[in-house]
């Protein structure tokens, strides 16, 4: 499905943000990446769909290396990779249904993008997805009027509209209250179990990771320090992931 081999990245050419990161993600599973702030979780996730260009390594998505694609091929590959963000990144002035429909624009023509032309089948699917995440009656609400939890669910529906094989989630619950956290995580878990989508989630809450993950990858200072089934995530392993002695520089990065 997705295999990352020997991924290496440095933003400034001096400090390594990722060093020889290798792991793989299986379909139908929730894989969680945990690690302290500044460990490199976001960098890994954004390298997968090449929002940032890494320095070295291999990212095999359906047996093609994402790093070798040209612009057009990359765009096409991205159409099948959903992404969820901590701050939702919805188009707030537009309605929920319009935001969800954006998910299928990647495979459509310039004209369709400019004039918002969608097929009936797509419109139907968008509405069903909104209903699936429990927002059927909010379809015509402007997204700026929705609550954080609702926005994140619109974000998930939008990602599903891409018919993704994998969904990448960067701290999807960091801005949510406990109740919305459960709702959102339940939906993500359901996608893996019932729809067979690979779900890769960055988290820094260990308890949530334990509860929802099938597989856990622990990152510290840009290196994989744990890569195993979730039930094997012991307290010792957690202490090892979150230890601070490796490199004091740079591990105190403020999340926002």
């Amino acid at each position: 499905m997705l295999t990352v081999n020997h991924l290496t990245k440095s933003y400034d050419g001096e400090k390594m943000s990722l060093t020889d990161v290798s792991f793989s993600v299986r379909p139908g599973e929730v894989t969680v990446i945990i690690g302290p702030s500044g460990a490199g979780k976001t960098t890994i996730l954004r390298s997968i769909n090449q929002l940032i260009r890494d320095d070295d390594g291999e990212i095999l998505f359906d047996d093609t290396d994402m790093r070798q694609l040209n612009r057009r091929q990359l765009r096409q590959a991205r159409c099948r990779i959903g992404m969820i963000f901590q701050n939702y990144n919805l188009i707030e002035p537009l309605t929920a249904i319009e935001n969800v429909l954006h998910g299928c624009l990647g495979t459509k023509s310039n004209l369709a993008g400019i004039f918002s032309m969608y097929r009936n089948r797509e419109k139907e699917e968008a509405l069903q997805l909104l209903q699936k995440v429990g927002l059927g009656e909010f379809a015509y609400q402007q997204c700026r009027n929705l609550s954080g939890g609702q926005k994140q669910r619109v974000g998930i529906a939008r990602a599903l509209m891409q018919r993704p094989k994998i969904i990448l989630c960067d701290e999807p619950i960091a801005s949510l209250d406990p109740k919305s956290t459960v709702t959102v995580m339940d939906i993500l878990r359901d996608l893996a179990v019932n729809d067979g989508i690979s779900v890769l989630i960055n988290l820094h809450q260990v308890d949530i990771a334990r509860k929802y993950a099938d597989h856990v990858i622990g990152i510290n200072n840009g290196q994989v320090v744990f890569d195993n089934r979730a039930k094997l995530l012991s307290d010792v392993a957690i202490a090892n992931i979150y230890q601070k002695n490796v490199n004091t520089e740079g591990s105190l990065v403020h999340e926002f």
Binding site: S116, N120, K123, E124, A126
Partner: peptide, 17 residues
Amino acid sequence: MNSDVQQINRFFSKKRF
């Protein structure tokens, strides 16, 4: 289901108009 699609169509037609 069909009436839902009609509603979406109406929404987009109104915007376009």
